[in-house]
Design a protein around this nucleic acid. Sequence first.
DNA 1: TCTGGGGTCCTAGGACCC
DNA 2: TCTGGGGTCCTAGGACCC
Length: 431
Amino acid sequence: MFALIDGNNFFVSCERVFQPQLRQRPVVVLSNNDGCAISRSDEAKALGIRMAVPWFQIKHLEQQAGLVALSANFALYGEMSDRMMSLIAELGPKQEIYSIDESFVDVCGLNNPLERSWALRQKIWDWTSLPTCVGLGPTKTLAKLANHIAKQAERNPGSYPAEMAQVCDLSRLSPTAFKEVLIATDVGEVWGIGRRLADQLRECGIHNVHDLAQLDPALARKRWSVFMERIVRELHGQPCLEVEDIIEPKKQIACTRSFGQPVSQLADLEEVVATFGSRAAEKLRRQHSVTSQVLVFIRTSPFHKGSRFSQSAITSLACPSADTREIVRAAISGLRSIYRPGFDLIKAGVILADISPASLSQPELDFGAASATSSAPLMSAMDDLNRRFGRGTVRLGSVALPDTPRLWSARRERLSGRYTTRIDEIPYGCA
DNA sequence: TCTGGGGTCCTAGGACCC
DNA sequence: TCTGGGGTCCTAGGACCC
């Protein structure tokens, strides 16, 4: 038996905790660069605002419908997520934090998981003011589906039986009621079925979740892949996936951004790449890994007419490393190899691949080179100082100063306060 | 004018090995 | 005429997730 607990409209809900005047109003949170809507309140969804729609296409709703748009404040969301996750951990012994706003919990063998889920939901609300929904089912895929139904039943009364709202336990339904729910749910709502696969399934006459569950697993594998077979089996109630409570190190670490303004000078790009490379190296060291491949890319806007440019370069390190200096050096040499003047570039990124644990890395035989081992004390001193005194306190000379506007700095014109991470911005009355 | 960021898994096909 | 068989590793590309 699995539970999936999920924050409703999570980023918007985090903002509403500290700005209660935003409740009952249409609100969206915008992505980096105030580019598109990545979280929408129910009222915003009711205005027909779709996920990831560009801001300029809905901007008129500010005037017309009182829409409020905010720049993404990930420091705040991460903090609120930690609070929510620590409460969810009390539900059962195995918790998998699946994303910033979602968590699976293994509730096998627990007495009355339904009652406990209701209590948990109430506690999260009482302690954090975050609204959540809980889905319960015999597999992760069914728990996901139950969670979707719990939200739909709350948002659109009449779409599903009212008792399924907020907390939905699919395992308590009679076979007939269960079948009705599956028939009422579009196949595209199943976890793992995206737009492409949904289209392919519909072409085969599979329109709702019941149709998909009827599919022969062997046929699903033959026509699609083991992936589809697993989904079908999970819909049958046969668990193929477990709660993964051990956090595996990332196999790939990226730092990529769109720019606030187009950039075309190499000097600016070098600063960008040094800054992104440093961030990626910090993430790499935080999980105690080293990398041996540094990919850098630059590109023009895919939406604009005019001369396009998109190139990437992979630089291999002689010896796996987590040293900011080596990673930045590799990224800049890659950048120089692909750079061409005369293009309005709007995005760049540094991606670290071929990642392995630092503990397994062997020092290079060349005694003159800086190996992962010899540079580790310097890097960890740098990380300690930056943790203690703030990001960018100690950095490479080529990296942009923190909080200094650059041509390429992202737009964040609607940023809310740092309510949980800055002592001088804690709301009055809460301090 | 204005269009996000960071990940994962699976498969097919080529190179290579004995 | 006829041109092995079985395996691994790696990579690019496609699809998905939030």
